[in-house]
Design a protein around this nucleic acid. Structure first.
Lengths: 207, 207
DNA sequence: GTAGAGCAGTGACATTTGTCACGATTTGAC
DNA sequence: GTCAAATCGTGACAAATGTCACTGCTCTAC
């Protein structure tokens, strides 16, 4: 079908902040060819509603309690024939990689001008992909994660205020082992404390 | 004047995220009595535009680079006869106190239903105040900050990944002194590391 | 004026953390 | 089979961090 006339687009919105969700609905409902058919506040509900309403596009916030945007995207795309656009506040390069691996069609930061969002959605419905050029460039220049799985495990817990012993307990490892992982991670990332290393890894989207 | 007919409300919106700003504009412009007359992405610009456009209400996001919402509110209210409503993602009790001290008229979290926002704005224009009941309750039950100014200074830097020596240099103090402040803060907050103490203090809105 | 609170510092000490060197496995690649 | 890399562990050590006791100083309140 090579029709060029604007097709009616049915949209699902997931964002944990009620105000933002409502505002995005208002914004997109202004477009004559877009209709918001579902509006939910978490990833699990997004998957359920996607199955129930079969929208053309799902607009998912990345930061949500429970199942985050990428997890929700993976679930939705494995059960429903639809497209997914991820919206995020903090666009970290590693997250873009994970999103693309989950077969997401669009990736836009919240710094995008509001006028562009509807166009992105139309592009995605038309089978195109849209990746924010700024993030794409960062992701391409950013080097690959130099850390091993275990190092990442240890770093993940170091973002909270856990002691080495607590992390060791959680990972079922000896305290010395955890210290070694953290130490090598710190060397690789050129950090002066495990907290700094965890911060760097997070900003890169590795954890 | 005891007129009851809906008055025309001129609104300024400040939010560093373009998408959110646009979406909120769309949402509020749907209201027949509300007109968005200025839309900016930081606190400094908000103060300038408030002076230039003399809006009836300023809707300020709390989290903005440079001058945050409360700082912007203070500047605006000292130069223009207008009302201020603060919108925030992370509603911490201490922040509410600071906002009220800055003579803000409204305080709403981003979890507020979108439909309510216009009503809040109308209430504020009518001279009323609106404080999110949930946050108000938390702020009233939460005990007052038990920390001294210097303890707060030291904690503020502990949120980043600075060493004690670096914090001491920044504050022009001896390293031992800083350690003492951090230690007493940790005792007061029942924390097991300065990072945990800083986290607690931040969540309470004290730093 | 004096008692209490906050401020600034010192020194001693125990604990936690980070570093290093070294084994012993397992796993996948060649 | 052998090699390299990742994994898991130990023990020893230095540096950073947290705790405690104690000394002055300057305000403020009563």
């Amino acid at each position: 079908m090579t029709t060029t006339e604007p097709r009616h687009i049915r949209l699902l919105i997931a964002d944990d902040e009620h105000l933002i969700r409502g505002a995005l609905s208002a914004l997109l409902n202004l477009e004559p060819d877009i209709e918001v058919v579902a509006s939910v506040d978490n990833g699990v509900a997004a998957a359920e509603q996607a199955l129930a309403t079969k929208p053309d596009v799902c607009l998912l916030d990345l930061e949500m309690p429970g199942a985050d945007g990428i997890e929700a995207a993976a679930r939705i795309l494995s059960t429903v024939a639809t497209k997914v656009v991820i919206v995020t506040r903090h666009a970290r390069p590693g997250v873009l990689r994970r999103a693309l691996a989950a077969r997401v069609s669009g990736f836009v930061p919240k710094s995008t001008p509001a006028e562009e969002l509807a166009d992105v959605i139309r592009d995605v419905v038309a089978g195109k992909r849209y990746i924010d050029p700024e993030i794409a460039a960062t992701a391409l220049t950013a080097e690959r994660c130099p850390l091993t799985d275990r190092e990442l495990d240890a770093l993940r817990f170091s973002r909270s205020t856990m002691s080495v012993q607590e992390i060791a307990d959680r990972l079922h490892l000896a305290a010395g082992t955890v210290r070694n992982y953290l130490s090598s991670a710190m060397t690789k990332l050129d950090a002066r404390s495990r907290h700094e290393a965890a911060e760097i890894a997070w900003q890169q989207g590795w954890i």
